[in-house]
Amino acid sequence: MLAYIIRRIFQSIIVLLAVGLVAFSMFRFVGDPIEQLLGQERTVQDVERLREALGLNDPFPVQYATFLGRAATGDFGISYRQSRPVAEIIAERAPATLELAFVSGFLALTVGIGLGVFTAIRRDGWAANAIMSLSLVGVSLPTFLIGILLIYVFGVQLRWLPTFGRGDVVDLGWWTTGFLTTSGLKSLILPSITLGLFQMTLIMRLVRSEMLEVLRQDYIRFARARGLSAKSVNFRHALKNTMVPVITVTGLQLGAIIAFAIITETVFQWPGVGLLFINAVQFVDIPVMAAYLMLISVMFVMINLLVDILYVWVDPRLRIDGRHT
Protein backbone atom coordinates (compact mmCIF):
# COMPACT_ATOMS: atom_id res chain seq x y z
CA MET A 1 0.00 0.00 0.00
CA LEU A 2 2.64 2.50 1.08
CA ALA A 3 4.88 1.55 -1.83
CA TYR A 4 1.98 2.02 -4.18
CA ILE A 5 1.26 5.52 -2.87
CA ILE A 6 4.92 6.54 -2.93
CA ARG A 7 5.18 5.35 -6.51
CA ARG A 8 2.08 7.34 -7.44
CA ILE A 9 3.45 10.49 -5.78
CA PHE A 10 6.71 10.08 -7.65
CA GLN A 11 4.82 9.76 -10.92
CA SER A 12 2.81 12.87 -10.06
CA ILE A 13 5.97 14.92 -9.65
CA ILE A 14 7.18 13.84 -13.07
CA VAL A 15 3.84 14.81 -14.56
CA LEU A 16 4.12 18.27 -12.96
CA LEU A 17 7.63 18.82 -14.29
CA ALA A 18 6.49 17.79 -17.76
CA VAL A 19 3.53 20.17 -17.64
CA GLY A 20 5.84 22.98 -16.60
CA LEU A 21 8.25 22.20 -19.41
CA VAL A 22 5.53 22.07 -22.06
CA ALA A 23 3.94 25.26 -20.75
CA PHE A 24 7.25 27.09 -20.70
CA SER A 25 8.25 26.04 -24.17
CA MET A 26 4.88 27.28 -25.43
CA PHE A 27 5.23 30.72 -23.89
CA ARG A 28 7.73 31.65 -26.57
CA PHE A 29 4.94 31.48 -29.12
CA VAL A 30 2.49 33.57 -27.13
CA GLY A 31 4.23 36.76 -28.13
CA ASP A 32 6.65 39.31 -26.75
CA PRO A 33 5.61 40.72 -23.35
CA ILE A 34 7.66 43.87 -23.94
CA GLU A 35 5.29 44.95 -26.72
CA GLN A 36 2.48 45.08 -24.18
CA LEU A 37 4.48 46.67 -21.40
CA LEU A 38 5.87 49.75 -23.10
CA GLY A 39 3.99 52.42 -25.01
CA GLN A 40 4.44 53.36 -28.64
CA GLU A 41 6.94 56.10 -27.82
CA ARG A 42 9.47 53.66 -26.32
CA THR A 43 13.08 53.60 -27.43
CA VAL A 44 15.34 50.66 -28.22
CA GLN A 45 17.18 51.41 -24.96
CA ASP A 46 13.94 51.12 -22.95
CA VAL A 47 13.20 47.76 -24.57
CA GLU A 48 16.69 46.41 -23.85
CA ARG A 49 16.70 47.60 -20.24
CA LEU A 50 13.34 45.99 -19.52
CA ARG A 51 14.21 42.78 -21.35
CA GLU A 52 17.31 42.43 -19.19
CA ALA A 53 15.43 43.31 -15.98
CA LEU A 54 12.78 40.68 -16.65
CA GLY A 55 15.35 38.02 -17.48
CA LEU A 56 13.97 37.55 -20.99
CA ASN A 57 17.45 37.50 -22.46
CA ASP A 58 18.33 34.34 -20.53
CA PRO A 59 18.29 31.07 -22.47
CA PHE A 60 15.15 28.98 -22.17
CA PRO A 61 16.55 26.29 -19.81
CA VAL A 62 17.80 29.00 -17.44
CA GLN A 63 14.37 30.67 -17.41
CA TYR A 64 12.69 27.35 -16.71
CA ALA A 65 15.12 26.40 -13.96
CA THR A 66 14.75 29.82 -12.32
CA PHE A 67 10.98 29.46 -12.43
CA LEU A 68 11.05 25.96 -10.90
CA GLY A 69 13.50 26.98 -8.20
CA ARG A 70 11.31 29.88 -7.14
CA ALA A 71 8.03 28.02 -7.53
CA ALA A 72 9.27 25.31 -5.17
CA THR A 73 9.46 27.97 -2.45
CA GLY A 74 6.04 29.37 -3.32
CA ASP A 75 7.38 32.39 -5.21
CA PHE A 76 5.79 32.66 -8.63
CA GLY A 77 7.45 35.92 -9.54
CA ILE A 78 5.89 39.27 -10.35
CA SER A 79 3.08 39.77 -12.84
CA TYR A 80 4.22 41.72 -15.92
CA ARG A 81 0.79 43.25 -16.28
CA GLN A 82 0.06 44.26 -12.70
CA SER A 83 3.60 44.64 -11.28
CA ARG A 84 2.54 42.68 -8.19
CA PRO A 85 3.52 39.25 -6.83
CA VAL A 86 1.61 36.55 -8.69
CA ALA A 87 0.98 34.56 -5.49
CA GLU A 88 -0.79 37.61 -4.02
CA ILE A 89 -2.96 38.07 -7.12
CA ILE A 90 -3.96 34.41 -7.26
CA ALA A 91 -4.76 34.37 -3.54
CA GLU A 92 -7.03 37.38 -4.16
CA ARG A 93 -8.82 35.77 -7.06
CA ALA A 94 -9.07 32.18 -5.84
CA PRO A 95 -12.06 32.66 -3.48
CA ALA A 96 -14.24 33.86 -6.37
CA THR A 97 -13.46 30.81 -8.47
CA LEU A 98 -13.71 28.34 -5.58
CA GLU A 99 -17.07 29.70 -4.40
CA LEU A 100 -18.42 29.58 -7.93
CA ALA A 101 -17.10 26.04 -8.41
CA PHE A 102 -18.52 24.96 -5.06
CA VAL A 103 -22.02 26.26 -5.83
CA SER A 104 -21.91 24.84 -9.37
CA GLY A 105 -20.73 21.48 -8.09
CA PHE A 106 -23.38 21.46 -5.36
CA LEU A 107 -26.11 22.30 -7.88
CA ALA A 108 -24.85 19.71 -10.33
CA LEU A 109 -24.75 17.02 -7.65
CA THR A 110 -28.09 17.61 -5.93
CA VAL A 111 -30.15 18.45 -9.00
CA GLY A 112 -28.32 15.85 -11.09
CA ILE A 113 -28.90 13.01 -8.60
CA GLY A 114 -32.49 14.08 -7.93
CA LEU A 115 -33.42 14.22 -11.59
CA GLY A 116 -31.46 11.05 -12.34
CA VAL A 117 -33.40 9.08 -9.74
CA PHE A 118 -36.67 10.61 -10.91
CA THR A 119 -36.12 9.79 -14.57
CA ALA A 120 -35.07 6.25 -13.68
CA ILE A 121 -38.11 5.53 -11.53
CA ARG A 122 -40.58 7.19 -13.91
CA ARG A 123 -38.83 5.79 -16.91
CA ASP A 124 -41.72 6.19 -19.32
CA GLY A 125 -43.46 9.22 -17.82
CA TRP A 126 -43.80 12.32 -19.99
CA ALA A 127 -41.97 14.45 -17.39
CA ALA A 128 -38.99 12.11 -17.39
CA ASN A 129 -38.91 12.10 -21.17
CA ALA A 130 -39.08 15.90 -21.26
CA ILE A 131 -36.20 16.15 -18.78
CA MET A 132 -34.15 13.70 -20.80
CA SER A 133 -34.71 15.66 -23.99
CA LEU A 134 -33.89 18.96 -22.28
CA SER A 135 -30.72 17.48 -20.84
CA LEU A 136 -29.45 17.17 -24.39
CA VAL A 137 -29.36 20.95 -24.46
CA GLY A 138 -27.14 21.00 -21.40
CA VAL A 139 -24.74 18.51 -22.94
CA SER A 140 -24.58 20.01 -26.40
CA LEU A 141 -24.85 23.80 -26.06
CA PRO A 142 -21.55 25.59 -25.52
CA THR A 143 -21.13 27.28 -22.14
CA PHE A 144 -20.59 30.63 -23.80
CA LEU A 145 -23.98 30.54 -25.47
CA ILE A 146 -25.81 29.35 -22.37
CA GLY A 147 -24.28 32.21 -20.39
CA ILE A 148 -25.26 34.83 -22.96
CA LEU A 149 -28.79 33.39 -23.18
CA LEU A 150 -29.23 33.46 -19.41
CA ILE A 151 -27.88 37.02 -19.25
CA TYR A 152 -30.27 38.11 -21.98
CA VAL A 153 -33.35 36.51 -20.41
CA PHE A 154 -32.78 37.09 -16.68
CA GLY A 155 -30.53 40.14 -16.81
CA VAL A 156 -31.68 42.25 -19.72
CA GLN A 157 -35.31 41.24 -20.33
CA LEU A 158 -36.59 40.32 -16.87
CA ARG A 159 -33.96 42.26 -14.93
CA TRP A 160 -34.14 39.85 -12.03
CA LEU A 161 -30.46 39.10 -11.74
CA PRO A 162 -27.21 40.97 -12.31
CA THR A 163 -25.53 40.50 -15.69
CA PHE A 164 -21.92 40.59 -14.53
CA GLY A 165 -19.58 40.61 -11.58
CA ARG A 166 -19.69 39.16 -8.10
CA GLY A 167 -21.83 41.76 -6.33
CA ASP A 168 -20.82 42.98 -2.88
CA VAL A 169 -18.38 40.74 -1.08
CA VAL A 170 -17.47 40.51 2.58
CA ASP A 171 -13.77 40.51 3.32
CA LEU A 172 -12.84 38.02 6.03
CA GLY A 173 -9.18 38.95 5.88
CA TRP A 174 -7.93 35.78 4.22
CA TRP A 175 -11.01 35.14 2.11
CA THR A 176 -13.63 37.24 0.35
CA THR A 177 -17.09 35.77 0.24
CA GLY A 178 -20.23 36.56 -1.73
CA PHE A 179 -22.34 34.22 0.42
CA LEU A 180 -23.12 36.87 3.03
CA THR A 181 -24.74 39.60 0.92
CA THR A 182 -27.92 39.64 -1.13
CA SER A 183 -26.18 40.99 -4.22
CA GLY A 184 -23.42 38.42 -3.80
CA LEU A 185 -25.92 35.56 -3.72
CA LYS A 186 -27.91 36.93 -6.64
CA SER A 187 -24.73 37.30 -8.64
CA LEU A 188 -23.88 33.64 -8.07
CA ILE A 189 -27.07 32.25 -9.63
CA LEU A 190 -26.51 32.71 -13.37
CA PRO A 191 -22.79 31.89 -13.52
CA SER A 192 -23.15 28.80 -11.32
CA ILE A 193 -25.98 27.45 -13.48
CA THR A 194 -23.94 28.17 -16.60
CA LEU A 195 -20.87 26.49 -15.20
CA GLY A 196 -22.66 23.53 -13.61
CA LEU A 197 -25.16 22.71 -16.35
CA PHE A 198 -22.92 20.30 -18.21
CA GLN A 199 -21.94 18.41 -15.06
CA MET A 200 -25.55 18.42 -13.90
CA THR A 201 -26.77 16.69 -17.03
CA LEU A 202 -23.79 14.35 -16.99
CA ILE A 203 -24.48 13.24 -13.41
CA MET A 204 -28.18 12.96 -14.14
CA ARG A 205 -27.63 10.66 -17.08
CA LEU A 206 -25.08 8.62 -15.16
CA VAL A 207 -27.36 8.19 -12.12
CA ARG A 208 -30.26 7.28 -14.40
CA SER A 209 -28.44 4.55 -16.26
CA GLU A 210 -26.85 3.16 -13.08
CA MET A 211 -30.24 3.17 -11.37
CA LEU A 212 -31.87 1.37 -14.28
CA GLU A 213 -29.10 -1.21 -14.07
CA VAL A 214 -29.47 -1.69 -10.31
CA LEU A 215 -33.28 -1.79 -10.41
CA ARG A 216 -33.01 -4.90 -12.58
CA GLN A 217 -30.91 -6.73 -9.98
CA ASP A 218 -32.28 -9.68 -8.04
CA TYR A 219 -31.93 -8.10 -4.59
CA ILE A 220 -34.22 -5.24 -5.63
CA ARG A 221 -36.77 -7.76 -6.81
CA PHE A 222 -36.46 -9.57 -3.47
CA ALA A 223 -36.80 -6.30 -1.60
CA ARG A 224 -39.97 -5.55 -3.50
CA ALA A 225 -41.20 -9.10 -2.88
CA ARG A 226 -40.58 -8.60 0.82
CA GLY A 227 -43.13 -5.84 0.64
CA LEU A 228 -40.78 -2.93 1.40
CA SER A 229 -42.08 0.51 0.50
CA ALA A 230 -41.08 1.95 -2.90
CA LYS A 231 -39.26 4.79 -1.12
CA SER A 232 -37.16 2.39 0.88
CA VAL A 233 -36.36 0.25 -2.15
CA ASN A 234 -35.49 3.14 -4.40
CA PHE A 235 -33.45 5.25 -2.03
CA ARG A 236 -32.05 2.90 0.61
CA HIS A 237 -31.23 -0.05 -1.58
CA ALA A 238 -30.96 1.13 -5.17
CA LEU A 239 -29.51 4.65 -4.92
CA LYS A 240 -26.77 3.66 -2.45
CA ASN A 241 -25.40 1.13 -4.91
CA THR A 242 -25.30 3.64 -7.76
CA MET A 243 -23.16 6.08 -5.80
CA VAL A 244 -19.71 4.54 -6.32
CA PRO A 245 -19.28 5.54 -9.98
CA VAL A 246 -21.05 8.84 -9.29
CA ILE A 247 -18.50 9.78 -6.62
CA THR A 248 -15.62 8.96 -8.95
CA VAL A 249 -17.01 11.05 -11.77
CA THR A 250 -17.90 13.90 -9.43
CA GLY A 251 -14.37 14.02 -8.08
CA LEU A 252 -12.90 14.29 -11.53
CA GLN A 253 -15.54 16.75 -12.69
CA LEU A 254 -14.82 19.05 -9.75
CA GLY A 255 -11.38 19.58 -11.24
CA ALA A 256 -12.96 20.24 -14.60
CA ILE A 257 -15.36 22.79 -13.08
CA ILE A 258 -12.49 24.79 -11.62
CA ALA A 259 -10.30 24.51 -14.70
CA PHE A 260 -13.02 25.29 -17.21
CA ALA A 261 -14.48 28.16 -15.24
CA ILE A 262 -12.43 30.29 -17.65
CA ILE A 263 -15.26 30.66 -20.15
CA THR A 264 -18.00 31.26 -17.62
CA GLU A 265 -15.82 33.78 -15.81
CA THR A 266 -15.17 35.65 -19.05
CA VAL A 267 -18.84 35.80 -20.00
CA PHE A 268 -19.92 37.02 -16.55
CA GLN A 269 -16.82 39.10 -15.79
CA TRP A 270 -16.46 36.90 -12.71
CA PRO A 271 -13.34 38.08 -10.86
CA GLY A 272 -11.71 34.66 -10.50
CA VAL A 273 -8.49 33.01 -11.60
CA GLY A 274 -9.97 31.96 -14.96
CA LEU A 275 -10.53 35.56 -15.96
CA LEU A 276 -7.05 36.34 -14.68
CA PHE A 277 -5.63 33.65 -16.95
CA ILE A 278 -7.46 34.93 -20.04
CA ASN A 279 -6.08 38.40 -19.33
CA ALA A 280 -2.62 36.97 -18.85
CA VAL A 281 -2.75 35.29 -22.25
CA GLN A 282 -3.87 38.51 -23.90
CA PHE A 283 -1.09 40.54 -22.33
CA VAL A 284 1.60 37.83 -22.47
CA ASP A 285 1.86 37.84 -18.68
CA ILE A 286 4.11 34.79 -18.50
CA PRO A 287 4.50 34.56 -14.68
CA VAL A 288 0.71 34.49 -14.23
CA MET A 289 0.20 31.96 -17.02
CA ALA A 290 2.91 29.71 -15.63
CA ALA A 291 1.57 29.86 -12.07
CA TYR A 292 -2.00 29.21 -13.20
CA LEU A 293 -1.08 26.22 -15.34
CA MET A 294 1.06 24.76 -12.56
CA LEU A 295 -1.68 25.19 -9.97
CA ILE A 296 -4.30 23.61 -12.21
CA SER A 297 -2.04 20.67 -12.96
CA VAL A 298 -1.21 20.26 -9.27
CA MET A 299 -4.95 20.18 -8.62
CA PHE A 300 -5.63 17.55 -11.26
CA VAL A 301 -2.70 15.44 -10.13
CA MET A 302 -3.87 15.64 -6.51
CA ILE A 303 -7.40 14.65 -7.43
CA ASN A 304 -6.16 11.72 -9.47
CA LEU A 305 -3.87 10.66 -6.66
CA LEU A 306 -6.72 10.81 -4.16
CA VAL A 307 -8.99 8.84 -6.46
CA ASP A 308 -6.29 6.20 -6.91
CA ILE A 309 -5.82 5.94 -3.15
CA LEU A 310 -9.59 5.77 -2.68
CA TYR A 311 -9.78 2.89 -5.13
CA VAL A 312 -7.27 0.95 -3.10
CA TRP A 313 -9.19 1.72 0.04
CA VAL A 314 -12.59 0.84 -1.46
CA ASP A 315 -11.59 -2.23 -3.44
CA PRO A 316 -9.91 -4.89 -1.27
CA ARG A 317 -8.71 -6.83 -4.34
CA LEU A 318 -6.36 -3.96 -5.28
CA ARG A 319 -5.00 -3.91 -1.73
CA ILE A 320 -4.06 -7.59 -1.84
CA ASP A 321 -2.43 -7.22 -5.25
CA GLY A 322 -0.51 -4.20 -3.98
CA ARG A 323 0.97 -6.28 -1.15
CA HIS A 324 2.33 -8.84 -3.56
CA THR A 325 4.08 -6.42 -5.87
Partner: peptide
Protein backbone atom coordinates in the same frame (compact mmCIF):
# COMPACT_ATOMS: atom_id res chain seq x y z
CA UNK B 1 -15.45 44.21 -18.68
CA UNK B 2 -13.44 42.29 -21.27
CA UNK B 3 -16.33 40.71 -23.11
CA UNK B 4 -18.16 43.44 -24.99
CA UNK B 5 -21.38 41.40 -25.25
CA UNK B 6 -21.48 41.33 -21.45
CA UNK B 7 -20.86 45.07 -21.28
CA UNK B 8 -23.69 45.76 -23.74
CA UNK B 9 -26.03 43.54 -21.69
CA UNK B 10 -25.09 45.38 -18.51
CA UNK B 11 -25.72 48.74 -20.16
CA UNK B 12 -29.12 47.60 -21.46
CA UNK B 13 -30.08 46.23 -18.06
Amino acid sequence: VQNSATAVAALLS
